[in-house]
Design a protein around this nucleic acid. Structure first.
Lengths: 343, 343
DNA sequence: AACGATTAGCTAAACGTTTAGCTGGTTTGA
DNA sequence: TCAAACCAGCTAAACGTTTAGCTAATCGTT
């Protein structure tokens, strides 16, 4: 492996000069610069990030912890973060915590050992999450992405889920549906809670009663939503429309209705939330709320990098960026307009 | 930030002893060990991986380059790789190359600068791929995953795609379909070429003519397959069954037929390949070939770690692991049996 | 009693960078 | 004309580990 020392020898200069050329950080005459540069390419020299970081105390490494990379929501967020990171010369260490505390702790430890410059967290629902606490006490710059604990003070980039619930529900109300159901995830997920809140607000606005029997909670998954709706359908009465807290659940709801002989959207309308890539290709293209996943990752990484480079005095409260969603009207809700793009 | 030095001071020992305790690498009396350990936890000491790696010349970092993390195929592979890596104390640096040469080179450079111990490559189709060449000349251990150039000699973990094509096509033939079409991706993808080869073999075995007009190629995407099949349908004649080289294409083909008023599988059967998670939840659950994506990532990382730790003399040709797929019979091909699991 | 083996711990030299601080030389401006 | 300012380059000390090599004590064996 070639080192600066060898480059310096070949070019007949000191290693300080090589360093200056590599980082073009100081005055170097054109002649020496050229000699160094040619030595570098002759030897195929590549600076050793370890040595550099050891001295520098910055690694140009960002950590990103997500619950489950297999959920189609996250790859797009990760992609956005990676793009922003790469543009600023950072790399991303991705970890999947699978919702297991041991694994979460192990991931965190190994990220800290690798001395990441900052962390992107897509896994925090509670203010006393151990990872969050540890990172704060270690003073590692961090940004929460997508999820955050109510009342959190610090950097975060999230979607305006209340607005999402409002948009989806108002759209259903506009189609003259009255008995509108909601199916969400466990209460600990702020995303689901807020979508429900948006739904309830829209119902109130329109002076419609919330049919509490049709408010259900289960996993953020297709299977569980399917099972839940098979139960509802078997019990005899069905709603006119359903707002599902994410697209996967919406798919499950639709499959349940279809399997029971109902038509979507003719017999019952369904609206999702997330706008994962597949939603437009579903056999009944899904009307849903677009959440700017890629942008969430991108802005998250950008904010993190800003936080890293900031003299940490300013902005102790952090920045809270909330991205407005927009509604994508497709087929599953019965309004046959073409797709809208906004905002 | 606490260092070994501070731990050593607090415990009243030399830093060599602290190092010995941390790595439990040498004789340390129980008494000192305990004193050191308590100092470590008192100070919340965490070894600095940079310094360690600088000395050690191993970073416990693996690089993984994929074309596009947004394609539902890859997250599962990455997850498998991450699980195996974590089990061996490694971390993974993920890069998305988006099929752009500049980006691929930039990703490679930054991985090399970070001195990854080895590389997982999901992006190599040609023997003279620049990334592949560079890694070989730098003697970085590497494993190709999923894709590989014909005639490649080195480590690889891939699916047996010929077998996949055989399984899918034989199943269609078993359902008494005769006019069976194939839609694949660009010829440069070995995965698609081999699936086609399996298809052709199965047709020959059954003495069926390959309807060359119905052999089509387009992107590995839903949209392109949809467009291609809309054209076919408009031209008047349709096949009895279609084997699509991946699940996304299969979805596109199905959507094209449905949009044109045909029923699947009643009027035309469709079989995919990959078995991405969504295939079982598609409204017409997809009959497809299961490719063991998670295992590919897992075995890939395990093989890579073995290669890293091996005294590099042995096994110069590398190891070529080919995973046998199995068929998952769902609904889109008209055979209504329950799912089979194998092998 | 003398010997090697074994155990326990320490010192100090790397690993490959960055960077503060130094030495001369060359411009500039008053 | 001379000091200040600037420029170009070098030396050497970190950064936080690992580890070879040393000392010294203890323990069996002969």
């Amino acid at each position: 492996m070639t080192t600066m020392r060898k480059v310096a020898e070949l070019a007949g200069v000191s290693i300080a000069t090589v360093s200056a050329v590599v980082n073009n950080s100081a005055y170097v005459s054109d002649e020496l610069r050229e000699r160094v540069q040619s030595a570098i390419s002759q030897l195929d020299y590549r600076p050793n990030a370890l040595a550099r970081s050891l001295k520098n105390r910055r690694t140009k490494l960002l950590g990103f912890m997500v619950r489950n990379i297999t959920n189609p929501f996250y790859p797009e967020v990760v992609l956005g973060a990676e793009d922003a990171a790469r543009a600023a010369g950072y790399n991303i260490l991705v970890s999947t915590t699978a919702d297991e505390e041991d694994r979460e702790r192990a991931c965190l430890e190994s990220m800290l050992e690798h001395r990441v410059d900052g962390m992107l967290l897509g896994i925090v629902d509670e203010i006393n999450n151990p990872t969050l606490i540890k990172l704060k006490e270690q003073k590692v710059p961090l940004v929460l992405v997508n999820r955050w604990p109510e009342g959190f003070e610090g950097n975060a980039v999230v979607a305006d889920n209340i607005e999402g619930g409002l948009l989806a529900t108002r759209h259903m109300i506009d189609q003259a549906y009255k008995k509108i159901a909601f199916i969400g995830a466990a209460q600990r997920f702020i995303t689901s809670r807020h979508r429900e809140e948006g739904y309830r607000r829209a119902m109130r606005e329109a002076s419609l009663a919330v049919p509490e029997d049709f408010i259900r909670y289960c996993d953020y998954s297709e299977e569980h939503a399917y099972t839940e709706y098979r139960k509802i359908i078997e019990s005899g009465e069905i709603p006119q429309a359903v707002f599902a807290a994410n697209d996967l659940m919406a798919f499950g709801v639709i499959r349940a209705f279809l399997d029971s002989g109902y038509r979507v959207p003719e017999d019952v309308a369904v609206v999702g939330c997330d706008d994962i890539e597949f939603s437009s290709k579903f056999l009944i293209p899904l009307t849903t709320v677009h959440l700017h996943k890629y942008e969430m990752g991108k802005l998250g990484a950008e904010l993190l990098i800003r936080a890293i480079n900031e003299p940490d005095i300013a902005e102790p409260k952090g920045e809270f960026i909330q991205i407005k969603p927009y509604l994508v009207i497709r087929k599953s809700c019965g309004a046959m307009k073409t797709e809208t793009h906004g905002p």
